[in-house]
């Protein structure tokens, strides 16, 4: 490990090859490279790219789920989808989920990681393990346990009422105003541990000498964090946020066991919407469900690009 970290970074590709090799020639010389890539190309092609292409194709079909095949109907699914209030409702819910859950998970985990990274904090290993526990718990169990403890007569509400924080029990999962936020809370609880570990790993990359230097300069906790830790963590922030966002798009089993998307669609995220159209309808609509998936994919991608452009513009403006 030490060898590699101190090594100079080289980006240039292999030894100075004779220039102007033809494409064919290059491919033949590099045969072993393709051998190395073979498992990935075959596996990725079959299990990721092909299904993706297939679901794009399904999006243009009228395919009632009980039939073996569908019939081509062009953009009709997308036209219906565009006018479907419930699709946009689920899209909004997914965005709210992303916008609240991801920053919460990333931020809270960072805070805890900083505390747990300090040598002076007692029982660091124990706390780390306890916070990590929910990550290894399967979704079905989490769903059932939380439905019971968040229940109006459950322990959480008993504690809230007894401590006089609220007058009457909070309907965490059964009111349309609360359900989405309750699911967000449970999701952050379940996955915080893994983000915490990412942050701890990131923090360990900061050499201790930097902190010592800051101390000697008389920097307090806040200043130390603001001027030493934070700048060094920024690159990790991007990666960790990205990974957590992928997770936030896969909340299906948790939502299903906690609220089923209800009440009154208030916690229905796009994945649940797709599931409902593909499996839960009187006559399942596979083409329509695929169209919803494709449209959602396009919209998220557009948002991601807009965000990236925005960040770039902001950086330019700062510089």
């Amino acid at each position: 490990m030490t060898v590699t970290t101190e090594a100079p970074v080289r980006q240039k590709a292999p030894a100075p090859a004779p220039k102007r090799r033809t494409v064919w020639r290059r491919m033949r010389d590099d045969w072993w490279i393709y051998l190395f890539l073979l498992p990935t190309v075959v596996g990725y092609g079959l299990y990721t790219v092909y299904p993706l292409v297939a679901s794009w194709w399904y999006a243009f079909l009228d395919w009632p789920g009980f039939a073996d095949v569908g019939t081509f109907i062009g953009f009709a699914n997308f036209e219906l989808l565009w006018a479907d209030d419930l699709f946009w409702n689920s899209f909004r819910n997914s965005l709210v989920f992303l916008a609240i859950a991801v920053p919460l998970r990333v931020g809270l985990a960072l805070l805890l990681a900083i505390v747990l990274n300090r040598r002076s904090t007692p029982f660091r290993g124990l706390f780390r393990t306890l916070l990590f526990l929910p990550v290894v718990t399967t979704g079905a169990i989490v769903g059932v346990v939380f439905t019971l403890i968040l229940d109006a007569g459950g322990p959480v509400n008993l504690a809230l009422v007894k401590s006089a924080l609220v007058d009457s029990p909070v309907d965490f999962l059964g009111s349309s105003g609360m359900s989405l936020y309750s699911v967000i809370g449970v999701w952050v609880w379940k996955w915080l541990g893994i983000t915490l570990i990412y942050w701890l790993a990131a923090l360990q990359t900061i050499p201790n000498e930097l902190y010592e230097a800051a101390r000697i300069d008389g920097a307090g906790n806040w200043k130390e964090f603001r001027y030493v830790t934070l700048p060094l963590l920024l690159p990790f922030l991007v990666v960790i946020t990205l990974i957590d966002m992928v997770g936030a798009l896969n909340v299906f089993d948790l939502v299903m066991t906690l609220t089923g998307g209800g009440p009154a669609f208030s916690s229905e995220v796009v994945e649940v919407y797709i599931y409902r159209t593909a499996f839960g309808a009187t006559v399942p609509q596979l083409g329509y469900a695929s169209a919803a998936a494709v449209l959602f994919g396009l919209l998220t991608m557009a948002l991601a690009i807009a965000q990236a452009l925005g960040i770039r513009a902001a950086r330019r403006a700062m510089a």
């Binding site: 439905t147 968040l150 229940d151 109006a152 007569g153 459950g154 009457s168 029990p169 309907d171 965490f172 999962l173 059964g174 009111s175 609220t259 009440p263």
Partner: peptide
């Protein structure tokens, strides 16, 4: 109504 009614299914 039982206050938990809103978050229960019939089997629960």
């Amino acid at each position: 109504l039982h206050p938990a009614s809103s978050s229960l299914g019939p089997r629960d």
